[in-house]
Simulated scan of single mutants.
Amino acid sequence: MQLGALVPFTDTGGDPSLVRDFALAVEAMGYDFLEAPDHVVGGNPATNAGTDPRRGIADDMFHDPFVLLGYLAAATTKLTFFTGVLIVAQRQTVLVAKQAACLDVLSGGRFRLGVGVGWNPVEFTALNENFHNRGRRSEEQAQVMQALWSQPYVTFKGRYHTIDDAGINPRPTSGRVPLWFGGHHEHTLPRIAKWGDGWMPNAYPPDQAALDIFAELRRLTEAAGRDPASIGIEVWTSCGQGAEADWRREIEFWKRAGASHICLTTTFGRRHHHRIAGRTIADHLAALKRYRAAVADIL
Rank of each mutant, 00 (worst) to 15 (best):
E244K: 01
D297S: 13
P228I: 10
I276M: 10
D32M: 02
Q241W: 11
G84N: 15
Y291D: 02
R271H: 12
Q143V: 11
A215Y: 11
E244N: 02
A75Q: 13
Q2N: 11
R249S: 10
H63Q: 15
G158F: 07
P8V: 01
F124V: 00
D38M: 03
H261Q: 01
R248I: 07
Q143G: 13
P190Q: 14
P37I: 07
I276G: 06
Y160G: 09
N202C: 12
I213C: 12
G258T: 06
I163A: 06
A49M: 10
Y160T: 08
E35S: 15
S138F: 09
Q90P: 09
N130Y: 06
G240C: 09
R218D: 12
P53C: 03
R275C: 10
V235R: 13
G4D: 02
L299Q: 08
H184M: 14
V177L: 02
Q151R: 10
C263K: 07
M1E: 00
T51D: 13
A100H: 00
A209F: 02
R248D: 03
A287Q: 00
I233Q: 12
D32K: 06
H161K: 06
L127V: 04
D32H: 10
H185P: 07
L189A: 11
R290G: 05
D227R: 04
R191M: 14
G175L: 05
L103S: 04
Q99S: 14
M29A: 06
A215G: 15
K157L: 01
A166W: 08
T83C: 06
A75L: 10
P8S: 08
G14V: 05
T12N: 05
M61P: 04
L148D: 02
Q99Y: 04
T93W: 01
H187C: 14
V88H: 13
N120E: 04
T162M: 07
R110P: 00
K289D: 09
G196L: 11
A224T: 07
A74F: 01
G269W: 00
L95P: 04
G56V: 08
N128Q: 12
T77F: 00
A142W: 04
A293I: 06
M29C: 09
K255N: 11
D38A: 08
M29L: 13
N120L: 07
I87E: 12
L285T: 02
F268Y: 15
S107D: 05
W195Q: 14
H272A: 13
T83I: 03
I233W: 08
E140Y: 01
A97Y: 05
Y31G: 03
T188N: 12
E234C: 15
A229N: 14
T266F: 01
Q141H: 03
A193H: 11
A245Q: 14
A287I: 03
L34Q: 00
A46S: 15
L113D: 09
L3I: 09
E123N: 10
P205L: 06
I192D: 09
R54W: 08
P170A: 13
V88L: 15
V19T: 02
G175T: 08
I213L: 02
H273G: 10
A277M: 06
